[in-house]
Design a protein around this nucleic acid. Structure first.
Lengths: 265, 265
DNA sequence: AAGTGGTCTAGACCACGTT
DNA sequence: ACGTGGTCTAGACCACTTC
């Protein structure tokens, strides 16, 4: 690269480049979507699209806010959200730059969506059991309800390419939502919860493995003693109430958990 | 509860109570730790200690900021950080309240700390292999380095109560940090990275299961064909560079992954 | 010394949920 | 109608990094 004279700002020797020259950001002040979110979305799009390459500097926040006609806190809020997502890095005295290796996927939820969402065309879900039962000791403890109180017990068999990939056993507080088989098989539990106004907030999971019992082997179309992945999970909504408890098994030959951890300082 | 006259603010019927009466918050404006962080810590302490019970309202942000002698954005920043942690819930028109079920643990990192930190008195770690080798195709792809370039190959056997609980096989870019066996066995990889100035930011994991091969069974002191948990992970630092790739196995009879997911809107 | 992000202030108006 | 959090502004000073 030729090192030509530069009337404006001197270019640092090591620094990648000024970057983010004049990408056009269209901010709609009438839109109900917040300005910081609009900006964040467009920055993210620029990163994913490649207009902003890994290592590129964003330019300082003050200039940015002036150029965009926004206040600095608003710009910071947008940038911060992308930093939280792992797309940008801030360094004092240096600037904000695009992360080097693109984050693989915003997969965030591990198998939670897999398990609850269903939906997709590939996998099919068959409701094997759907009834109201008194809560066992174990279920009651997980859901934080009195032992013996009524809970919905759900058992679903999920298949991909015609073969079983999961046996999902869920327990939910009754009166949380209506569980009809047809919707469960087509829509998925997760979407049913959302449309019932339930916002998932966190989940606690334990993943283990063991050999399949004869009965499990039969149902999952595996050999007896085949390796199974087991998962136990309690999900909580945004008020901290347990809304789902599940004990699931997966044939290890056809299923792995795949997820991304975000380390927070 | 007697319903007596109330000159001040009327008390809502369902609402728990005004709450957060006059907990003393000691803010040190000289301290290098930010005010919003000091406030967040003290709020969290009050929640964990029980001074703020689940469901308690915090009182509106404006009043709070006045009482604390802080600006509202600062107070909001503190509250927001606890909302992100799942300790508080905000509701428009209602207020901010303590989440109902206490979040179990801030475990956030699943087995990452387990695997990398070692440290603790219970588990011991034995370095079985520690050498520099040319990167295989698989390792090169995971770490984003050229195939055949030098990487550190590490193999450690971890025991609790004298029995193996994990066989950890790691690959790291050479020149990232010095890996001497003694420190690895006492300090743990994770702390060594931190003290080398490496800040972990995210990790991508795949967890599966399978039967142990004869050799694996021997090393993990298990029967041949016993169920194993397998985990493959690539960890990235805050600049997005891969800093660790691991292929680990765990005897399922003595190990489970246990972690908490935070769902982000 | 200069430039960057990190923190903080003191207001403002709006959207939403409750009453 | 009212009170709540949600958003936004236009500044200020500080701490850290690099030159």
């Amino acid at each position: 690269m030729a090192k030509t004279g530069d009337r404006g700002r001197a270019r640092a020797r090591t620094a990648p480049a000024p970057a983010l020259a004049a990408l056009d950001f269209a901010l709609d002040r009438v839109s109900p979507v917040p300005l910081y979110h609009q900006l964040a979305q467009q920055l993210q799009a620029a990163i994913e699209h490649g207009s902003l390459a890994p290592g590129d500097l964003l330019g300082n926040e003050v200039d940015l806010s002036v150029r965009l006609g926004l206040s600095r806190p608003t710009v910071r809020q947008a940038i911060q959200s992308l930093v939280d997502k792992g797309l940008l890095v801030r360094r004092r005295g240096v600037g904000t730059q695009v992360v080097h290796s693109r984050v693989r996927r915003p997969l965030e939820l591990s198998s939670l969506y897999d398990d609850l969402e269903a939906a997709g065309q590939g996998p099919t879900t068959q409701v094997v059991r759907n009834e109201v039962v008194p809560a066992s000791c174990e279920v009651a403890a997980a859901l934080g309800v009195p032992e013996g109180s009524e809970v919905a017990a759900l058992e679903r068999l999920r298949r991909t390419h015609g073969r079983p990939v999961a046996l999902l056993r869920n327990y939910l507080p009754v009166s949380l939502l209506a569980l009809d088989d047809a919707r469960l098989e087509s829509t998925g539990l997760y979407r049913m919860m959302r449309s019932a106004g339930i916002t998932l907030h966190s989940a606690r999971q334990t993943v283990g493995a063991r050999a399949a019992t004869p009965e499990e082997a039969t149902r999952l179309e595996e050999r007896e003693g085949a390796a199974l992945l087991t998962m136990e999970r309690t999900a909580f909504d945004d008020t901290g109430r347990a809304v789902e408890y599940g004990r699931h098994i997966y044939p290890a030959s056809r299923y792995t958990f795949d997820f991304q951890l975000l380390i927070r300082a």
